[in-house]
Computed example of a mutant assay.
Amino acid sequence: MRGGNVYEIDALRLLVTVADTGSFTKAAQRLNYTQSAVSRRIASLEQRAGGALFERLARGVRLNPAGHALYRHAVDVLDRLARADRELSMIREGLGGTLRVGAFSTANISLVPTALREFGRTAPDVEVVAVEGRSGALLRRLADGALDLAVVSDYPAGLPPVDGVTTALLLEDEVLVALPRRHPLAGAGTVDLYALRDEAWLQDAPADRPMMLTEVCARAGFRPRKTVRIAEWTGKFGYVAAGLGVALVPSLAAWAVPDEIVLRRIEGLAPRRAVHVALPATPLPAALRFCAPLREAATGSAA
């Protein structure tokens, strides 16, 4: 083989077909060529290879040692290309490739896992990479091309506009109040937050961020006398269960609440937050396919 030669895919496919059929004539019939065209193309291929690839017999042809060597490589190349075509087709249909899904913490408790479980049944060959973060950061990563889809919330200060990103409402998530099971108001159907004005309230955001807690308590007619900053939901639930405070909890987190805690609706105009699915301007087919089970999971969460 002469260094620097590049073999055309069609020529390699022709080589394999001639070798498999043992005949220029049969190969021509299989590939819808004329026999003279096959002869010319094989001669050109042999010129590129630097010598004969076939032994010409009285009836048909067979590979010589050089032909056998090139045949093995040709079969490997054609197989790799066929697998590449299948993989690309799967990606175009949303059934293959990688899907990078971002979500805020409470969406990862039940909403997103439920959708991913169903998605895995219908698109098992898609590799899902899950990323957790705050909604603003997820939207920026989506715009930067680091995510393919994100589940975001308008809490605490609305969704910032991000160029190249579109959002669609998934559900309205009601905010509840979490109380220890032994709390005097734990048995109430709804709770007037004013009755909790002397409780310690658990929150996680830095002091310079706008807080739903501040707004909700102000609407109920008081300011919390004490706040305890706990970053993770598991920590908040631990403090509430121990009777060290109460907390606002979105209904999406209800599945993870331990038995020592009860969730109660807030009397009056219950606070809600909107949960959206966000996509880039040109979404991956797998991302579009994932939207269907995500909406089904959202419907179940909102029920």
Rank of each mutant, 00 (worst) to 15 (best):
residue 225 R to K: 14
residue 80 R to I: 04
residue 301 S to T: 07
residue 248 L to R: 03
residue 30 R to L: 12
residue 250 P to Q: 04
residue 224 P to E: 04
residue 270 A to I: 02
residue 117 R to K: 14
residue 108 N to G: 12
residue 246 V to K: 00
residue 160 P to A: 09
residue 154 D to Y: 02
residue 52 A to C: 01
residue 199 E to F: 05
residue 39 S to C: 10
residue 156 P to E: 05
residue 174 E to C: 09
residue 83 R to K: 15
residue 117 R to W: 11
residue 274 A to Y: 00
residue 258 P to E: 09
residue 29 Q to M: 10
residue 56 R to S: 04
residue 275 V to N: 01
residue 243 G to M: 02
residue 32 N to K: 13
residue 67 G to A: 03
residue 86 R to A: 14
residue 138 L to G: 00
residue 162 V to A: 09
residue 32 N to W: 11
residue 93 E to P: 00
residue 105 S to D: 11
residue 228 V to P: 03
residue 168 A to T: 14
residue 291 C to L: 13
residue 92 R to D: 12
residue 98 T to H: 08
residue 278 A to K: 00
residue 27 A to S: 07
residue 216 V to C: 03
residue 242 A to N: 10
residue 294 L to W: 00
residue 31 L to D: 04
residue 184 P to N: 10
residue 99 L to F: 06
residue 111 L to E: 04
residue 15 L to D: 03
residue 76 D to K: 13
residue 22 G to A: 04
residue 295 R to S: 06
residue 263 L to M: 12
residue 145 G to I: 10
residue 162 V to D: 07
residue 79 D to L: 06
residue 44 S to F: 15
residue 53 L to I: 08
residue 169 L to E: 15
residue 97 G to V: 02
residue 11 A to E: 15
residue 166 T to D: 12
residue 103 A to V: 01
residue 50 G to T: 09
residue 110 S to G: 13
residue 297 A to P: 06
residue 145 G to V: 11
residue 144 D to V: 02
residue 3 G to I: 15
residue 282 T to N: 13
residue 64 N to E: 03
residue 284 L to A: 14
residue 193 L to T: 05
residue 132 E to P: 06
residue 260 E to L: 08
residue 159 L to M: 09
residue 215 E to L: 09
residue 158 G to D: 09
residue 224 P to Q: 03
residue 168 A to M: 10
residue 6 V to N: 15
residue 79 D to I: 00
residue 121 R to M: 14
residue 281 A to Y: 03
residue 263 L to E: 11
residue 266 I to V: 10
residue 280 P to I: 03
residue 211 M to F: 02
residue 155 Y to C: 08
residue 199 E to C: 12
residue 35 Q to E: 15
residue 80 R to M: 09
residue 294 L to E: 07
residue 121 R to Y: 12
residue 265 R to C: 06
residue 3 G to Q: 15
residue 23 S to K: 07
residue 277 V to G: 02
residue 245 G to E: 04
residue 29 Q to N: 10
residue 14 L to V: 06
residue 252 L to C: 04
residue 158 G to F: 04
residue 282 T to L: 13
residue 69 A to Y: 07
residue 165 V to Y: 08
residue 134 R to D: 09
